Computed example of a mutant assay.
Amino acid sequence: MTAHHELRLLPWAGPEGKPCYLDTDDREGYVSRLADHIESVQLGMAAELLEQSVQVLDDETEDAEKLRLVAAQLAGALRDVLCVATSRGHRLVTPE
C-alpha cells in the first residue's frame, strides 16, 4: 500500500462528506483519468463563475439575494479549486 502522503486526493467526497483518496501508481488508470477530467471541469467552471461574479458585483442594481447566491457559488468553487490544488500539490515530485 502507498504511504498516506502519496495517496491522491480525489475531487469528490465520500460518505458523510469525508475525503476520498486513490491508492495507485497508475496515472493512466480509469479512476485517475476520471479524477483528472473532473478537476478540469471544476477549474473551468470556477473560471466562468469568476467572470460572471465580476459582472454581478459591478452592477450596483443587483439585490442582496443575487449577491448571496453568487457568494455561495464562489465559496463552492473555491472549495473545489483548493481541493484540486491540494491534490496536485501532494503529487509534485520533491527532492529528498
Rank of each mutant, 00 (worst) to 15 (best):
S87N: 04
E62W: 00
S32Q: 12
L22N: 02
H4Y: 12
L9C: 05
R8Y: 09
V31P: 07
Q52I: 07
L22Y: 03
L67Q: 02
A64M: 04
E6Q: 15
V31N: 05
L34P: 05
P19H: 04
E96P: 02
A47W: 01
R33V: 03
E96K: 01
Q52H: 13
P11E: 14
V93W: 05
L74I: 03
E48K: 14
V56G: 01
V93R: 10
K18T: 10
K66P: 05
R27H: 13
L50M: 12
L78E: 02
D80H: 09
Q52E: 10
G29R: 02
S53I: 14
E62M: 13
P11C: 04
S87G: 10
L78N: 10
L10W: 04
S32I: 09
E16F: 15
T24E: 02
T61K: 11
D26N: 04
S53P: 01
Q42C: 00
G17F: 02
G17W: 02
A47L: 07
C20A: 12
L7K: 11
R27P: 07
L67N: 04
Y21D: 01
T24L: 00
L92F: 03
E16W: 14
K18F: 13
P19A: 05
G17R: 10
L69N: 02
P15G: 12
A3D: 15
L22S: 03
T86W: 07
D25R: 12
G89P: 01
T61V: 06
A13V: 15
T61M: 11
A35Q: 03
V54M: 12
H5C: 11
R33A: 00
L92A: 11
A85N: 15
L92C: 12
D59S: 01
D59A: 08
D58A: 13
L43W: 06
L7V: 09
E60T: 12
R33I: 00
S32R: 06
L82Y: 14
E48V: 06
L78T: 11
I38V: 13
D23Q: 13
L92G: 03
V54K: 15
E28W: 04
L82M: 15
L34T: 12
D26H: 05
H4I: 14
R88D: 00
D80S: 15
V84S: 01
L92T: 03
R91H: 08
C20W: 15
T2A: 15
D25Y: 07
P19C: 06
D25M: 13
E65W: 05
D59K: 00
